[in-house]
Design a protein around this nucleic acid. Structure first.
Lengths: 167, 167
DNA sequence: CTTGGAATGTCAACAAGGCTGACGTATCTT
DNA sequence: AAGATACGTCAGCCTTGTTGACATTCCAAG
């Protein structure tokens, strides 16, 4: 076949609309699986996915401020506040006034909060682990690579900022 | 190398909790990017992500029944019905009584519906394409492999069933 | 032919979790 | 002293999910 010089024959077949559509559908179905296990645990309680996200990132960055959490989660402060308020009221999250800047609130998980966070992330990690194991290390590297390329620039910045901190 | 037969030293480092956590966060941020462009388009209208999903799968499988769509989307018929009703009322989707089984409704996109579906999927595919291009074909294969391993069995069945049909 | 079950549609009520806008307070910064 | 920042909160709205109840229409089995 008379192909253009730059990209020949088979080389770009992975960029066909059909391949892209399959990728889109894979994201859709996989994301359902991704959230299914935590959702099941949360379903029994008065909490939802929003609470899970808050717990995750507070666990991830203990002492984070409300504003920081806001920009990571990408929601309004009113939305986050509703979630945070219930977590604080129920004793899962502690909010401490900043020492340097007293306007800030620094967020930490309590023992109770840590316990729930662990239950949720264990469930999610179990699925992730078996998917990783089934796919193998090369596939996992590709998986991460594509996901990172799919993020908006500012999301990627948030993600990178979290990336290599101690857990 | 003196490796145990099954798995050894370095071999399983991609299965550490830290690696799994990074994968979880990558899914979270990437999914936001994944939906951002269609969401932006939909934001201007009276439609949301649920409408996008319905349009996508009706486009994908023209003539599909309500029940079939229900099981693909994984929502209740009441939820889907609300979305479908507005799409039908607004003339984006046509609902035809089944010829063999007249209880069934077969769903098709109208020209207007096709136009919106195309606008949405073009936006989503553009992002997907640039992510794919940036990551390369090997990474893409890994990406798909991990996502497929992450699905629930019944979701994977739905996905596989769609997989190789003509567009 | 009647009856049971399947597929669909619809009404009502409710909840989670997004959003905007407005306002208040405490605290920094200039 | 004035303005900006961080946070909380009230009120109201939207989308999208849920359950429960009920009607209709049709197929298929007895």
């Amino acid at each position: 076949m008379a192909e253009p010089a730059t990209n020949s024959g088979q080389a770009l077949l992975f960029l066909t609309d059909e391949q892209l559509r399959k990728g889109i559908e894979a994201m859709f179905f996989a994301y359902r699986g991704f959230t299914a296990d935590p959702d099941r645990i949360l379903g029994d309680m008065a909490y939802g996915r929003a609470h899970h996200r808050a717990l995750h990132f507070i666990h991830r960055s203990p002492g984070t401020t409300v504003n920081n959490l806001l920009s990571i989660l990408g929601v309004t402060k009113q939305s986050l506040n509703r979630v945070l308020r219930s977590l604080i009221t129920d004793g899962l999250v502690a909010s401490r006034v900043g020492r340097q800047d007293k306007r800030e609130r620094h967020l930490h998980l309590t023992d109770k909060g840590s316990a729930l966070e662990r239950a949720l992330s264990d469930a999610q990690r179990d699925r992730m682990r078996s998917a990783y194991r089934a796919a193998g290390p090369v596939a996992v590297a590709g998986f991460r690579h594509v996901l990172e390329a799919m993020m908006d620039d500012d999301m990627r910045r948030q993600y990178e900022a979290l990336k290599d901190r101690p857990a």
